[in-house]
Structures are given as structure tokens and as C-alpha cells.
Computed example of a mutant assay.
Amino acid sequence: MTKAELENKIATLKMDYIRIQGDMEKLESVGRNVEATERVLIQIEEELKECNQQLAKCPS
């Protein structure tokens, strides 16, 4: 992936993370189970970590 592609992917993942985090808060407020949502957030965090590592290796 190019640097621009990685930056776009990171931005998209961050937006998804924020949206899902909001959804999780809504679920919690009505007493729903949030385990599946937490797993999705963990997956996004791992993907962000990988993308940031790749981005650090890209030439400026």
C-alpha cells in the first residue's frame, strides 16, 4: 500500500471506531450485552496498529 492509501485506511478505521464506540455506549445504556461490540473494537485497534507500523516504514 502507498502512504496515501494507508493514511486513508487509518482515517476510515478511526471513524469506524468512533461510530462503533458510540453504538456500544447506547447498548450499554439500555442494558444490552456489548461483548461482540468490544471484540470489533479490539479488531479495529489491531488493524490500526498494523497500519501505523506500515506507515512508519513508508518513505516520506
Rank of each mutant, 00 (worst) to 15 (best):
K14H: 07
E45V: 00
I20V: 08
A56S: 15
K14D: 10
E47S: 02
Q43E: 13
V30E: 14
E47Q: 13
K9H: 10
I18T: 10
Y17T: 01
C51H: 13
C58S: 12
E47F: 01
I42M: 09
S60N: 14
K9M: 06
A11H: 08
T37L: 12
A11I: 07
T37Q: 14
N8P: 00
A4C: 04
G22A: 03
V30A: 02
L41S: 04
I10R: 06
E47H: 01
C51A: 15
V40N: 13
G22K: 04
L48F: 06
Q43K: 11
I42Y: 14
L41G: 06
V40H: 07
L6W: 05
D23N: 13
V34E: 06
Q53A: 08
Q54N: 04
E5V: 01
C58V: 02
L48R: 11
N33K: 09
S29Q: 14
C58Q: 15
P59M: 07
L13F: 10
L6C: 08
P59Y: 09
L6H: 02
I42G: 14
I44G: 08
K26W: 05
I18A: 07
E35I: 10
G22Y: 03
E38T: 06
I44E: 07
T2C: 04
E50A: 15
G22T: 00
E38Q: 14
L13A: 09
A56Y: 01
K9Q: 13
M1I: 00
D23C: 11
S29K: 08
K49W: 00
V30K: 15
L27H: 12
K14Y: 09
A4P: 12
Q43M: 02
A11R: 06
S60P: 14
E46L: 11
Y17N: 06
E38C: 02
M24P: 04
I44L: 09
K14N: 12
N33S: 03
E7L: 09
K14S: 04
Q21G: 11
K49R: 12
K26N: 10
Q53D: 14
E28A: 12
T2D: 14
Q53L: 13
R39I: 03
P59W: 13
Q43V: 01
M1G: 03
T2V: 00
E28P: 00
E50Q: 14
A4V: 10
E35W: 04
E45P: 06
T37N: 11
D16V: 01
I42F: 13
L6Q: 07
G31T: 00
I18K: 15
V34D: 01
R19V: 02
D23E: 15
I18H: 11
E25H: 05
Q43G: 01
R19C: 10
I44V: 11
T12S: 07
G31I: 04
Q54C: 03
Y17E: 11
E46G: 07
N52D: 11
A56E: 14
P59S: 05
Y17M: 06
L27A: 15
Q53F: 03
S29I: 01
T12H: 14
M15S: 05
K57Y: 06
Q43N: 14
